[in-house]
Nucleic acid binder design. Sequence first.
DNA 1: CATGAATGAGACTTCATTCAT
DNA 2: TATGAATGAAGTCTCATTCAT
Lengths: 225, 225, 225, 225
Amino acid sequence: MTRPSPTAEAPVEAPVRQRRKETRPQELLDAALALFVEKGFAATRAEEVAHAAGVSKGTLYLYYPSKEELFKAVVRQNLTSLIAEGMETLAQHQGSSSELLVMLMDTWWERVGNTAAAGIHKIVLSEVRNFPELADFYTAEVIQPADLLFSTAVQRGIDSGEFRPVPVHEVAHALMAPIIFLALHRHSFGACTPPCGATGVEPKRLIRTHLDLALRGLQVRPADA
Amino acid sequence: MTRPSPTAEAPVEAPVRQRRKETRPQELLDAALALFVEKGFAATRAEEVAHAAGVSKGTLYLYYPSKEELFKAVVRQNLTSLIAEGMETLAQHQGSSSELLVMLMDTWWERVGNTAAAGIHKIVLSEVRNFPELADFYTAEVIQPADLLFSTAVQRGIDSGEFRPVPVHEVAHALMAPIIFLALHRHSFGACTPPCGATGVEPKRLIRTHLDLALRGLQVRPADA
Amino acid sequence: MTRPSPTAEAPVEAPVRQRRKETRPQELLDAALALFVEKGFAATRAEEVAHAAGVSKGTLYLYYPSKEELFKAVVRQNLTSLIAEGMETLAQHQGSSSELLVMLMDTWWERVGNTAAAGIHKIVLSEVRNFPELADFYTAEVIQPADLLFSTAVQRGIDSGEFRPVPVHEVAHALMAPIIFLALHRHSFGACTPPCGATGVEPKRLIRTHLDLALRGLQVRPADA
Amino acid sequence: MTRPSPTAEAPVEAPVRQRRKETRPQELLDAALALFVEKGFAATRAEEVAHAAGVSKGTLYLYYPSKEELFKAVVRQNLTSLIAEGMETLAQHQGSSSELLVMLMDTWWERVGNTAAAGIHKIVLSEVRNFPELADFYTAEVIQPADLLFSTAVQRGIDSGEFRPVPVHEVAHALMAPIIFLALHRHSFGACTPPCGATGVEPKRLIRTHLDLALRGLQVRPADA
DNA sequence: CATGAATGAGACTTCATTCAT
DNA sequence: TATGAATGAAGTCTCATTCAT
């Protein structure tokens, strides 16, 4: 079997020569993402990334001129996909605003919070001070779109009379924070033995409870009329 | 400002040997906290910490046997006081549970979110994978007490009939997360020029809005009866 | 000698990167042996060893994970051959025990006393206290085999009626000591200008005299009969 | 008990103030000798010496300007006493040369081999290369006198017809070596658990056996006449 | 005299990066 | 292109020595 089947991916252990060079950058970025998230930027050695991607140290430098550039590439590549998905979800929705928020939160958790992508947020949070140029980039590409996504959804509910009038940005923050916060923890404390770093909070129930609370707080009550 | 004020002390430039065994640990911890929060653990050089504290490299090692131990000491020293204060506030409260939560949130922001102490959470979040023993320590000393503090307050409201029956841990998480999350951001993105990393969210208003939303969501409505 | 011979290679000055994975360990061990013997373990800097071997500091650590391990490797590498040779000599001998002892002593001096290998004994003697695990190793690999070698030879002479009955271990010690002792001195005092550290003792004559004395002391005299 | 009795010496543990400054140098030298012998020059920290002598680090430097000077002082001070004793023994002897040698060897072992003084030989052997100025000193003060002591004794026996004519310096070396060698080993390997570094050689028996062998070798036999 | 806090040069070791093969 | 041996700057930590008290 000299030619690996196109669907088989086993980057770490495959000593298969003849790997196609087109997939190299992606394999390196994947390996780097996992390691940067797990150990942080400084504690991840360039050689580890190369090894995890199944190539030698030298090869890494054939694709990325430095560890810093690799880091930035990891962030960039993982951000573009995030953004696209979020905006798409927003644009396609048709139902009530409460339903929209429920769906956004669920999607957010499935696509971001519960995947390696959430790790991106952790490393950016940890390293922006050392990579100032990432700040503008991340703000424009992630923070503001996410804020736009949720605040637009809230505004939509206010406009339709479904929600009370509230400061939309603050509410957007309050809506997203618990989910992202939970994701952050799962990528740091979450690695240790069960009880540690945890308070018995279970993701699914957290989302339900959080939304139940927030939607009740948002919805217009009879008494408000 | 070409003329330094006579009262301003500049520990960095003092070339004189000063014997201050009592105050040195605190000075070193303060310097370390600031630098660790700003640059991360790995990117902060031991000599920088010493210099910022106005002592030489060797002196740092007179008080802390390694950079790791210094880090742990920073975490410990900044946390013990936090926990104590929170529990005290809880114990002493007499009024309604809604008032209690408002007060806890305000205090939390003033004593934690808005101070360097919030930076602690950022570095722990970033470094806990590299310091496994820190995980247990931090969980026991910070995360669980904080969870206890807020979930007890919520339970108090439920017991008195002020709040609906809700899963207290999840609600506690949802209550704390936006505040801590905001603090995390101010210690990372917050360092750059105003609009960056921000979405126009203003701390005080966030807290008001967040609490308004959450308390409405918690309180028993006539319709629930 | 102002003109360097064209065949002499000067590894120290070669600024070119040379890939020589196979020969590097040996080159490093040789350099380390010479320097450890000359200056002691602690006074020899890792960089000196690397430089003497014609490589950079980092390369040394590519082959040996620490200065301690390098030291142990030097000891091991220089001992294995020693032991093997000694035992072989013993096994192959056919003549009288007196002749055997003469031959062992001569070989010992040529292969050990008069070579860098004797320096090993000096550094081990100086450093065992700092490397406890080295003690067992050296005892098992060098001291006991050497004792076995000589005490077996003496016992052989006693069994054949050539030597008087004597405590073999003590005699073995007394036979080896003057030679090793001389070797030790040549690696310490011997480095300075001729008269210093010396008492006019000339190695060859010492061995002759020492053996003459010892063999007369060992051999059965008519009067003993 | 504010004034320690003059005869009580407990340098290490006595926190007694008012220690007389006359004895300080001696206490420091004693502590340094023990530590240098045990751990070597480089591995012995100045503070350890000071602590073992019951004083602070600064005080050590009041008496000796540097660790190197302390080392040299240790060697010098311990050598002078050695020499004096040896020469005295020689001068006072009256009996046969065989008896003289037996006595010299016994004395040598008791006063040198079996005491910390033997450690001096070990450290000098280990460090001369780093302290070249010690070489001449040690040669003149120890090696040559010791050689003179034993070779004179042997020559005395030859002159009286008691011993065969032999090269006296080589014989002197052969006589001393086993004893000194044993002493060296006891200060290095001797520190570890019993069987290690040893070959079952027992000092007293070694000396007896060694002398028995050597004297038989030296003495004129009937057959030689 | 004595102390011990403070200093800073220097050693070991790591690892991002280079480059001959 | 790919490799991995080699490099050397940089960081952590030690400890001989100094000096204010």
